[in-house]
Design a protein around this nucleic acid. Sequence first.
DNA 1: CGCTACGCTGTAAGCGTTTCCACCCTTTCG
DNA 2: CGAAAGGGTGGAAACGCTTACAGCGTAGCG
Lengths: 337, 337
Amino acid sequence: MADQTRVPASRRVTINTVAKAAGVSIATVSRVMSGSSSVTPDLAARVHKVAEELSYRPSTAARGLVLGSLRNMGVILPDLANAYFFDVVKQMHHGATADGYRMLVADYSGDAADELATALDLLGQVDGLVLLSSRIPTSGLKELARQATPVLLVNRVELGVDLPMVAVDNFTPMMELCGHLAKLGHRRIVYVKGSDLAWQNRERWRAIEMAKVLGIEATAVPSDGTIEGGYDVVEEALTHEPTALVCFNDLTALGVISKLRERGLRVPEDISVTGFDDIDMARHLAPRLTTVVSPKIDLGDQAWSLMRAALNNETPTSPPLISADVVIRESTGPAPS
Amino acid sequence: MADQTRVPASRRVTINTVAKAAGVSIATVSRVMSGSSSVTPDLAARVHKVAEELSYRPSTAARGLVLGSLRNMGVILPDLANAYFFDVVKQMHHGATADGYRMLVADYSGDAADELATALDLLGQVDGLVLLSSRIPTSGLKELARQATPVLLVNRVELGVDLPMVAVDNFTPMMELCGHLAKLGHRRIVYVKGSDLAWQNRERWRAIEMAKVLGIEATAVPSDGTIEGGYDVVEEALTHEPTALVCFNDLTALGVISKLRERGLRVPEDISVTGFDDIDMARHLAPRLTTVVSPKIDLGDQAWSLMRAALNNETPTSPPLISADVVIRESTGPAPS
DNA sequence: CGCTACGCTGTAAGCGTTTCCACCCTTTCG
DNA sequence: CGAAAGGGTGGAAACGCTTACAGCGTAGCG
């Protein structure tokens, strides 16, 4: 562990240094820096100049202490490598920046168990916390609900917990996707799962099981929502002799298709593949991916509105599920006979 | 802008609240919380219990004030949507976490002009700042070099500036890539550029121009290092009638290949395409991408060592350029005759 | 010309923690 | 049994900043 180097007080440029150098009081310097109160223009200019020369930078810590807030927002998500999350975060970022908040993004890839710990740690230094596709167990969520700092759940719905939440409907579009497959004659499919801890995964699987009414028989094989995860599970998936592989997300689908090609199977002639999310690359892959367009912009916007409401102590009214649409491209075709 | 809600002092749970509730002094609570100094086990347990019940969470701001550091590291990068950056960051994150630092990641996608402003803003609340593939002009870099907070340049080499830096060699592997292409009979190539502000782009182009000695004639077309950027510039690139498209990075190559396919051109039979970085998906694309394996793990590790050294006020010895290798896959083939 | 009123600047009181230092209560040894 | 030593606890100062409040000077008005 690096030394807890305490910056020698003598060297650090504080508001005092500036005040002394400019021959004014620290109150004046403070006022000049914040630009709010009225200070004689000449004086302000002089202080600015001195501050500039000394390259004075107000201590965020001190500022945060007295103001009671650092104006930081925390965001925790499973995997930044997944462009989907990033797009949602980026959208929230716009709102946050406009409202004067900085964003601290933490990803806990690999360590799902760490998520709660990370959340608790972050709670100490943010004004609000956003949990994206959280895998925290219900009990942990309840603990978070007790905190004074607002916590927002995105893409996770948990009825027993008193937390604002917003999510994209996963069930309906997955049903539609199955309908599409059924229409193409597919009767036996395999679902390449995401994390069992993820609400979205449960929702998607729930829809697939429901597809029984469409005459589709489905099996699930475990995976983890990554490219490699998809690639690695194909052998196992094929043992069930499916005519279509429904993947948890686009990344998984990419890995799956790669492996399929390696095995000499053509998509969609020999086997169909679907994704979920419609990340940017989905439409550029070969074959272009049939997937679900999860509205990242909308989701990001709504998430930030909710957070802003919570920050202002309004009781945020959670919107209904945001709807998502199936987009049919090249990776699905008629079931081989 | 949301209200600058100052948390009512009466409601916030501070060390005082805990101290009073537990019937001890704040000094004791502090000692218990930090777990360092000796406190009678019974007492410690009692304090812990009370703190738990009140869900007390030490104020990071106050802590940072007295400690002189929030133990935060800032990272600024052009685009989190590019998995390459993220992989490097993730590796640094390991080191940072092990040393007790949190990481604040800021991406300025779209707003290259914002980068310096973001850096300056972040400087106020971090113990160190890492600039990934920075596009900040030299003058801005010099300004950063004057600050007390250590600033590290990753994947950017700027001789006149007194800042620690570490980078992957772009020149040599790009030369090799050209050599590979030359051997396949390519004589006329187009380079799909990245940002002109990026050092890496300049290095890569420098190598390509050098490839004249191999009998390769190259033209450059502007792009921005994104998937869409690659997709959009293909028409223009084709006007130069190249037999190979050398792309700034893998993302661009993905977009380029997508458009090529749309135009009915086969890769690599009709035209060859190369990428750079070897992000995870590169080996899974169709065709699998010929690219340069930029050592993300190594880079991340070295970056953190340098930062740690800087944090400890050691003069970090910048390592030489880290070498990268060409990996030949399916997207390059003999030039059509 | 004197008084009032207003505008600008400075003084000082916190914000929540950590930690030095002093103090007290044991324990132990002479 | 008394004094010294040592461990554990509390008091208080300090970290850098914001802001209420006071005080000073100037201008304007009677």
